[in-house]
C-alpha cells in the first residue's frame, strides 16, 4: 500500500520550498535590521565623539567648556553604584529564586508572589525611582547618596534576576537532585553543591543582562535626586554622585553642538562598558556550561 501520495507531494513541492525561502529571507531581514541599527548608531557615535576621546576626557570633571569637560565623576559614580547594586540584587534575587523554586510550597500564596514578580519586571523605571525616593532617601534617611541610588537600581532589576534565576534553577534535571539525595545529602547541601553550580551559567547570564540595564538607567536616579554637576568623587556610600547616563543626557540636551559631541563620546564609553559586561557574561557561561 502506498501511504504517501507522491503525485500530491510533488505538486506541492515548489510552493512549499518557496514559502520556506520567503520565511528564511524574512527572518534574516529581522536579524539584519537590529544589526544595521546598531551599526548606524556606532558609526554616528564614533564619528561625532571620537575627537573628544582622550586621556583628559577620563581625568577631568564636567565643565562648561566642552574641550575641558570630562566624565571622571560620572564613571566613578557608575562604578560605585554597580558596587552596591550587583551584590545586593544578586544575593536577594538568587535567594528569592532559590526559596520560590526549592523550598516554597506550591500553593495560591506562592502563585500570587510569582505573578507579582513577573508584573514588577514590567513596571516603568521611574516608578522605582519614586519608591527609592520615599523609602531610601527620605524614610531611611540615606539622603541622595550612592547607597540610595544603588538600592533603587537593585530593586529595579530584582524581578528580572529572580525570573532568570528561577528559569535556570528549573532547568537543572531532576535526576541530579535525586542522585544527590540518594547519596544522603541534605536539601541545602544539594542546592549548594549540585543545583547552584549547574544553574550558574543561566543565573549569571540573566543577571549580567540585568546589570547592563541598571548601568543605562537615568530616570530613577534623577528622581531620587542624583546630581548632575559633581566636581568630586564619592568618598563613601553616603556621598552624592552622578552617573554616566545622567551626564550623557545632560550633554545631549545642551544647545551647543560641542556638548552633543561630548555626549556621543560618553555614549561610546558607556557602550564599551556594556560590551565588557556582556563579554563577561559570555565567558562565564562558556566556562561553566555543561550539557545534561
Amino acid at each position: 500500500m502506498n501511504l504517501v501520495n507522491k503525485e500530491q507531494v510533488k505538486k506541492k513541492m515548489a510552493s512549499r520550498l518557496f514559502t520556506n525561502r520567503i520565511l528564511q529571507g524574512l527572518l534574516l531581514l529581522a536579524t539584519l535590521f537590529g544589526l544595521i541599527v546598531l551599526g548606524v548608531l556606532i558609526y554616528r557615535m564614533t564619528t561625532q565623539g571620537i575627537g573628544y576621546l582622550s586621556l583628559d576626557f577620563f581625568t577631568n570633571f564636567a565643565s562648561r567648556f566642552p574641550e575641558q569637560a570630562g566624565i571622571k565623576a560620572a564613571i566613578v559614580g557608575t562604578l560605585w553604584l554597580m558596587a552596591v547594586t550587583i551584590p545586593v540584587s544578586l544575593i536577594l534575587g538568587v535567594g528569592t529564586a532559590l526559596y520560590l523554586e526549592e523550598y516554597a510550597p506550591k500553593n495560591r500564596f506562592t502563585r500570587i508572589i510569582q505573578v507579582n514578580i513577573a508584573n514588577l519586571a514590567g513596571v516603568p523605571s521611574i516608578v522605582f525611582g519614586l519608591l527609592g525616593l520615599t523609602i531610601f532617601v527620605r524614610l531611611a534617611e540615606m539622603g541622595q547618596s550612592v547607597l540610595a541610588g544603588g538600592y533603587t537600581l537593585s530593586l529595579l532589576i530584582l524581578p528580572v534576576i529572580v525570573v532568570a534565576s528561577q528559569e535556570a534553577l528549573r532547568s537543572v534535571p531532576k535526576e541530579m537532585r535525586d542522585a544527590s539525595y540518594a547519596m544522603g545529602a541534605t536539601k541545602w547541601q544539594t542546592i549548594q553543591r549540585v543545583v547552584l553550580p549547574a544553574s550558574i551559567p543561566g543565573i549569571l547570564t540573566g543577571s549580567i543582562l540585568a546589570f547592563s540595564r541598571a548601568i543605562g538607567e537615568t530616570a530613577p536616579l534623577i528622581v531620587i535626586g542624583a546630581l548632575t554637576y559633581v566636581a568630586f568623587l564619592p568618598e563613601n556610600l553616603y556621598s552624592g554622585f552622578t552617573a554616566m547616563p545622567i551626564q550623557i543626557y545632560n550633554w545631549a540636551t545642551r544647545p551647543q553642538i560641542e556638548f552633543q559631541e561630548l555626549a556621543a563620546a560618553g555614549i561610546i564609553i558607556l557602550l564599551l562598558m556594556l560590551i565588557i559586561l556582556n563579554s563577561i557574561a559570555v565567558l562565564i557561561r562558556n566556562k561553566f556550561q555543561k550539557r545534561y
Binding site: A62, T228, A231
Partner: peptide, 29 residues
C-alpha cells in the same frame, strides 16, 4: 531647573577654583 543648570554649573566650576575645599554639586530635578 535644567534651564538654569548651565549657569550654575559654570558658577560652581569657577567657585571651585577659588574655594577648593567646598563641595558645590548641582542637580537637575
Amino acid at each position: 531647573s535644567s534651564t538654569v543648570f548651565p549657569i550654575m554649573e559654570a558658577v560652581s566650576e569657577e567657585f571651585k577654583s577659588e574655594h577648593p575645599d567646598v563641595k558645590v554639586p548641582v542637580g537637575v530635578s
